[in-house]
Structure formats: structure tokens, C-alpha cells
Write a protein that binds this DNA or RNA. Structure first.
Lengths: 343, 343
DNA sequence: ATCGTTTTCCAAAGCGCTTTGGATATCTGC
DNA sequence: GCAGATATCCAAAGCGCTTTGGAAAACGAT
């Protein structure tokens, strides 16, 4: 059943039927009702392809995820983000178009999305320092919202970010207040903007108290359990093991804990652990009381909000770049405690 | 730059230009070259919307993910699956359209996808027993491939599944051979077909050795860390604690381990643990030697293959339903050992 | 009754591509 | 040199919707 068949059936023109269904005012209430009923009775639904050709809108948002052998973008965090974004999309009749591309072809993927008119806008994931995607999208004229920020980028753009610097600063201060003086950092890859800012918050907190950052105790890599484990083993087995470790995410923190406990040490007593918790729905930081003391901010909520910001932009409800900086909350769990007496 | 502009510029008809670019034979090699060069020079890319209206094909595959407050479909496993599927899609010029829907509207979402012509086919995730989506899609005539199977479903359909029954049977046998006689099961929700089959493999292995399944030691719920933890606490603190626990996934297994170690018990000695490992890229079961003894099958590979099966079906390369049953491999890690002497 | 509005509807022209059904030009073999 | 095949190209008709620019009908005020 297409529009022509439906309008023939009703003895009306396609124009009128189309307008009736799309809520235009120039159609009598009685006819509108008649049309609506016929549409429902015959289970008519406008063909999306034709509709988007006619309107120039696709009602879909692009997410391009680079698939490199090195960094795993398609991870837990990503899936919770899109769950949130998808919710917002659904509420306003959009959906999401995901393209997985080799990371060497990422820029080209964005160009293709813009040129072929596949999407109405895109979300930029995992911005790096001075991220080249931002000026690219700006020039392409494709609406976009960045989840995170890009240090050094001069192009104006809309973003939503967690205050990673203050989150790690507060985490570090919290541990300092507990008497810890020797820290380990298990960070994410520091070309990523969020990891860069976290490192910055961490070092600035230490420097403010006159503590020198030990390069042997700062690590940055993929946020996996084995990485957290391996680096913690190294640190604990080294000359001057840390009494507190800050991890970039719950997942490496699990590895940190494994290394700690494997050595017969007690978490929260011998070694304190703080991590960043993205509040992932399927990997909660304990039920009820948190396992790990953590700086928490829901990535799912971020997805929801990013989606809304982008749709607003597409629909022209906003024109200037919009920024939102969210503060993470510090939740205290069982993984932290006063620094042990010096050995 | 659209087709008309390009053809005007070349002094050719749209027909010829279109054919030249799409590799049809009725165009001279010299003109084809000339067209290709002009297209590249002017950065011409055909408009996707127009193309799909004309061809009736969208070159995209639908994934609908129900978002219930109860079960979290959008989880780690899902994101690795779509990474694999996305790879296959990209290789053949497809991409993926994800719609997040309230789980009450799931059936309607599939109908809408079919009626509005948004996608060329869909992947069905997380089939339940007697899953109603399968006959629905069959009737709609929309090509689909099921990741998993649906017990009791009579409609013929294409699927790819891991042999969950044999995986759990082998895991149970492995533990039986080590002398364990008292087991705990931390399963997924048993309305889900995969969890149902796993339970079946588990109970049949026990029954074959004349062991009665203790309902107090079999649990089924969301596959989260806190659930694994909570149920293991219950079991270990009960009258007759198990010496071996089988978990449905790495994530609850982490909770199981936490409960075990919290009680001063040693994993692989006091309590053996086996889990199903989906070989998630960002949550590997150890680097090098596995942490957990596990039955392993890569969900990412499954995504890749499902994508291919579906595209083959869409392009008419296959006509009859296709089935693939993958065997999981049993990898032995440090979480299992001989049953402790009876207390 | 008449003229200007307003309401209600429609025919037709896109949107940018593919594809059908020729038309014209170029080869064959004899 | 010519009929028949073959290679090369084109005009025009879709695909199924939206939207423009009226036309016809109904209405209101004089």
C-alpha cells in the first residue's frame, strides 16, 4: 500500500492525503479523520526511502566507529553510550546508523556520510588532542556533537564532556588526605583527550602538595583487565610500591585488584584503589554499596544528552555551539582507606 | 554535484554516466574512464537517498535492541557482536541501522522496519524459547538471520548458534572428572534460549552420573557481577556449599571470584570456577594464560558470520535456510582444580 | 447579489537516481 | 557495398513521497 493507492481508494489527491497524515492545517478535520482511519485500516506507512528523498532528511544519526587492531573503541563504554543515545533518538523518531571502518579510513567515512546524505548529523566519539575530525566536519557542514572535548582544537563545536581533570584531581586529593604519598596511575591512552585531562588532574594535585610524579608508576594503555593487572604487578613488585592506585575505569581496576589480592594484600588497607566509574548498566560497581571508591558519571546519560543536543542542532532549535561540562561525583566504597604505616 | 550536473559537464546523458560508474557493459572503455576521472575530479558521490529509492535497496541491516528496565540487552556481548557484524557490512558496502525500542514495542519495530523499507534485512538478537519474532519476520518477508536459536519454533529460519548445551555439558563433565560432586550454577535468564540450553547441558551431565540437581544451587538472572557475587555468597554461606561453580559469562564469574576470595577461599583449590567466555576484546580472560577455565567462542566472529549469512540471503545467493552450529572450545585456566577432600 | 477572504482540495513539478526501450553508429561476413 | 549483428549512447519513465502554485468552493461583509 503506497500513497497513490491510498489516495485513489479515498477519492482524494495524494497531496491531501499526505497533508492529512502529516498534520498540515489546510485539510478539513473530517477528511483528516477519514484519511487517518483508512491509513490505519490498510496499514499504510510511508516509504522511508521516498520520504527522505523528498524531504532531504534521513531521520538518522551517524556513529562511525574506527576498528583498529590497537585501540578498542567498540567497547563496553561505547555500547552504553549508544543505548542512551538510541533512547533519545527513538523518542523523536530518529534512529542510528553505525558504520564500522578501518581507522585509516575514518576521515573518508565522515566525508562519505556527508556527501551521500546518509545521515542528518553525527556524534564524534573518543576525541583526541587536536582532533582532525572536528575541523573536517565543520567544513563539511554536517551537524555534529562531540562526546568529550579536543584540547588545542580552535574550530568552534558543540560538546558534552565530563570534567575529567577535576575528577582525577579530587580522587588524588582524597587519597592524599588519607595520608597516601606514593601513587600509581593506570591511565587510558593519553592521545585520547579524556586520558590526557585525567593525567593533568592527577599530576596537578600531586604537584600542589609538592609530590614528584614517579614515571615508573604512571602507565597509559588500553583499558583492559590484563593491562591493569600487569602494570599493578610491576608496580607492587618494584622497589617502592605505591600505597594507592588510580585506574581509568572499572575494568582495569578489576585487574588492579586481582594483582593486589594475588599478593596477599588487602584492598582498602594495604593498597587503596580509586577508579573512574562510567556507571555501566551491566558492570555496576557493586549493588548497594560500591566495591570501588570511584568518580562516577553515567555514560548512558551522556549518550542521552548528546543525542538530544544533536537533534536540537539538526532541527535548528539551536544555532551556536553548545557546551556541557558535567562534574563526576565521588562515591566512597570499600577500596580506599588510610595509608598504611611506613615500612 | 549531482548526476545531472556531472553528465551535463561531460556532455553525456545521465544514463551513460550512471552506467559507466556502475560498471555496466554497454559503455565504451574510453568513456568509462573519462567519466570515472570526472567523477573523482569533482568529488561526485551518488546520493544515497535517491539511489535507494530507485533501486529499492537500502544497503543497510537493522538491529533492534529492546531496552527494558529488566534485562540489559545492550551489553558488552552485544557491542562485540556488532563490531564483528559491522566489519562484514563494511566490506560489502552495507552499514547498520540500530533502533533502540521499549521492549513492549519490539514486534511493532520489526513491522515498521519492513513496511517502511528502512532496511534490507535484520539480525535477531537474543532469541527466547518459542520466539514470536521469527514467525513475524517470516510473514513479513523480511530477510533475517537469528543469532542463536529458538527451541519450539517451527518456522524455518537461518541461524548461527554456539552449541551451548554441549559447552555446558563438557564444562560439567570436566569438573566431574576432577572429582567435584556439589555444583552451583549461575545461569543467565532461562527464558533466553541460550541459557535454557546451557541449563540442559548442565543437568544432563549431572543426571548421567546419577547426581541430583540441587535447586538451592541453581540460579538464573541477569549476567552481572553483583548477581554472581550475591548468589555465590548465598551458596557458600549455605548448609552444603558447592565445590564448583559454573557461570554463564565472565562478568558474573568475576562476582563469583570476589565472593570466593572474600571468604578466604582460594579459587581453583577450595572452589573451582568455569564460565562461558565470549572472548570479548576488551574483557579478555587474561593475557596469555587464561584466568578462568572456560568454554570459549568468539561472539565477534559470530557477528561477522551472521552478517555474511544475512547479506548472502539478501543478495539471493542463498535461498534455503542456513544453519551453523559452532562448538565452543574448552580452555583450561587457573580457576579449576581437583575437588577438595570432603570436610 | 457581489466582491474579497478563507477554506479545502488538486495537478504537476520536483528530489536524484536507475532502467527500459529505442536510436544511431560501427562492425561483420559475404 | 549491403543486410544483419553489435557496440554505444540517449530520452523518458519510473521509484513514492513532499510541496508549490493555483483552482474551486464556501463563507462574510457590504
Amino acid at each position: 500500500m503506497n500513497l497513490r493507492e491510498l489516495s485513489d481508494l479515498l477519492g482524494l489527491s495524494q497531496t491531501t492525503v499526505s497533508r492529512a497524515l502529516n498534520g498540515y492545517p489546510e485539510v478539513r478535520e473530517a477528511t483528516r479523520k477519514r484519511v487517518a482511519e483508512a491509513a490505519k485500516a490498510h496499514n499504510y506507512h510511508p516509504n522511508t526511502r521516498a520520504k527522505s528523498l523528498a524531504t532531504g532528511r534521513t531521520m538518522s544519526i551517524g556513529h562511525v566507529i574506527p576498528l583498529s587492531s590497537q585501540h578498542e573503541m567498540v567497547n563496553c563504554v561505547f555500547s552504553d553510550f549508544i543505548a542512551g543515545a538510541g533512547e533519545s533518538y527513538a523518542r523523536r523518531g530518529y534512529d542510528m546508523r553505525v558504520s564500522v571502518v578501518d581507522d585509516a579510513e575514518e576521515a573518508e567515512a565522515y566525508m562519505r556520510l556527508a556527501q551521500t546524505g546518509k545521515v542528518d548529523g553525527v556524534i564524534v566519539h573518543g576525541p583526541r588532542l587536536d582532533d582532525e575530525r572536528i575541523p573536517l566536519l565543520h567544513n563539511l557542514g554536517l551537524p555534529f556533537v562531540v562526546h568529550g572535548r579536543s584540547t588545542n582544537c580552535e574550530t568552534p563545536y558543540s560538546w558534552l564532556d565530563v570534567n575529567n581533570r577535576s575528577a582525577f584531581r579530587r580522587a588524588t586529593d582524597f587519597l592524599l588526605d588519607l595520608g597516601h604519598r606514593r601513587f600509581g596511575l593506570v591511565n587510558g591512552i593519553e592521545e585520547m583527550d579524556f586520558a590526557h585531562r585525567r593525567r593533568d588532574g592527577y599530576t596537578s594535585a600531586l604537584q600542589d602538595r609538592g609530590i614528584v610524579v614517579d614515571p615508573a608508576l604512571t602507565h597509559a594503555f588500553e583499558m583492559t583487565e590484563p593491562f591493569g593487572y600487569a602494570k599493578t604487578c610491576e608496580m607492587l613488585d618494584g622497589d617502592a610500591p605505591p600505597t594507592a592506585i588510580i585506574a581509568s575505569s572499572l575494568i582495569p581496576a578489576l585487574g588492579v585488584r586481582r594483582a593486589v589480592e594475588e599478593r596477599g594484600l588487602v584492598m582498602g588497607k594495604d593498597v587503596s584503589i580509586i577508579c573512574f566509574d562510567d556507571a555501566l548498566s551491566y558492570l555496576p560497581n557493586g549493588a548497594g554499596s560500591p566495591i570501588f571508591t570511584a568518580t562516577r558519571s553515567s555514560v548512558r546519560d551522556a549518550g542521552r544528552r548528546c543525542g538530544e543536543m544533536l537533534m536540537d542542532q539538526i532541527e535548528g532549535q539551536t544555532t551556536d555551539p553548545v557546551h556541557e561540562l558535567w562534574e563526576a561525583e565521588l562515591v566512597v566504597g570499600g577500596s580506599t582507606g588510610p595509608a598504611p604505616m611506613a615500612t
